[in-house]
Design a protein around this nucleic acid. Sequence first.
DNA 1: TTGAAAGCGCTAACAT
DNA 2: ATGTTAGCGCTTTCAA
Lengths: 335, 335
Amino acid sequence: MNISELAEELNLSPTTVSRALSGQGEKYRVSRATVQRVLAAAEKHRVVPDALGAGLQRGRMGMVGLLVPDITNSFFSSLARSIELELRSDGFSVQLCDSAEDPEVEVELIEQIVKRRLDGLILAPVGRLSDRFVEAMTAAPFPVVMVDRILPELDLPLVSLDNAAAGRLAVKHLLDCGHRKIACLRGNRASYTDRERYRGVEEVLLREGLPTGGPLVCGDGYTRQSGIEGARKILGTVDLPEAVICLNGQGILGILEVASELNLDIPGDISVVAFDEQPWSALVSPPLTTIEQPVQEIATRAVELMKDQQGRGPGKSGHTVVEARIRIRESVAHR
Amino acid sequence: MNISELAEELNLSPTTVSRALSGQGEKYRVSRATVQRVLAAAEKHRVVPDALGAGLQRGRMGMVGLLVPDITNSFFSSLARSIELELRSDGFSVQLCDSAEDPEVEVELIEQIVKRRLDGLILAPVGRLSDRFVEAMTAAPFPVVMVDRILPELDLPLVSLDNAAAGRLAVKHLLDCGHRKIACLRGNRASYTDRERYRGVEEVLLREGLPTGGPLVCGDGYTRQSGIEGARKILGTVDLPEAVICLNGQGILGILEVASELNLDIPGDISVVAFDEQPWSALVSPPLTTIEQPVQEIATRAVELMKDQQGRGPGKSGHTVVEARIRIRESVAHR
DNA sequence: TTGAAAGCGCTAACAT
DNA sequence: ATGTTAGCGCTTTCAA
């Protein structure tokens, strides 16, 4: 049963029923009695106004898309939770899309979201910039905000870590602990996140006149497999680095797996600093020294930017930067 | 620009444009030339048919809800990924809702989904059955399928693990390894999942004439905190059990944390079998013996059931049961 | 091969 | 305090 049928049954106009049901009774001076009557009847017949009809009329469905490269990654699932919560409190619901680190899929997903005329999109891109991606993106008739693996070329509102600073933070801790030969396990090198983190790392290393590049830098990709392969190269050499910085959350799985395979002791044989705090970071042996992102803050900022632009078109740009912190535990030795 | 405006520009009717754009040209014998013309113009003006209008007309938006108690839990995020993928290949997108283990929130979320007239709901409930929940549920004018923490009272299509069998599997392994005094860290005792798993455990224990209940059974809840509290009781006693079965994925975090706090060696001081394989299960020390759910299969079955009922109302019931398997690693000692 | 008309369910502007 | 009218953007008979 819909609003009109209910109206008929009550000898009222759909308008009045609509007003009563949407809590606008006050505003439109629908009599208290009428409101009660409508509410009671609606309850009885289980009438719930169809958001689709309302959405079409209003031109907004109250739904924003959330497109992430891997919901399975605990950083993104935490982010998803925070974003969903924030958005919900503002009356929006969220459509979840997982591109599985595949740029093709990502574009299809974006196109699909455009069709749906969502009220916005919070996008953590795979990280590679393709023509079709830009094309799909510019067609978007709604606000977009990019988070994490941002594409700075795109002139959209952005929220990300100060990745270079985070990279520096990691190296500096290692330097403070007396390490000099420092390796780096990278993620997808095409991604801004990875490039920036690495830039930070390299910057400090170079400034200190320490070795970098060559066999000290491995890995390319955000899959577990790519992490394992990179870790094999770094950990499988005869002259082991003193420490390794892992630039992403999947990579550390590879490092731990390979280290155990090779019977390497952390931090005895090699020290480790890993990006992304995870629920289990403190529980492995040794407890991991990690670089932690303020997930909650990223979510809040992203949603703020989203709301700031509601109603407007593709939206003004601007880069919101948040800071990482280091959680020092026991995976770094002092030498 | 919308379909009508485009039609005007082309001196065609909206009808024809709609047919061309929706790939129904063949079916309605729109001339090849016209179709081309429309496609070209649509491309040029970036016209993408509004799914909202279409949805209203067709009475379905091609979207199903996915409501989970904790997207942060790797079981649910894996499930979400698999479900989103399956659903997408059938032309549906998914609205993500996270109830954060809160029954109140859960109900609000369901009511919200009803408003939205989604085409279905895949629901992993918090696990407690309230009146308002049943109420909201019966109002649902779309197919619902329940997964994981099913509420069997509800007469809906269900997909779940054979939890009792999984519980038995865990104990049996412990018995095989010579353990007799076996503790159990439970999750939310109001949930079917937990009750069944525990039933399986207890059944075997009782049959073997082994002690159970009392201080051997702790924990109630699916939060990390409840896991820690339960673990403290089990691990903090003077006469330690020989082994502990952890009935849920959060609990094991508590066990590992408390064991390390108390300087307990696993499996030297106490053996552990934990529910839910996680990405890091093999990487902690010692590598964890786990009970693994076939996540992919659960997703596939749930989506199948969903599609089976499309178009129909609240849907026929039936319980699809899948089997757990044990991954034996090194957290169980032989005595 | 194409179009006209109606209507999906709702709300907002404009009466009364 | 309530109702009338119109229309959001699309698809679907039914007609030409």
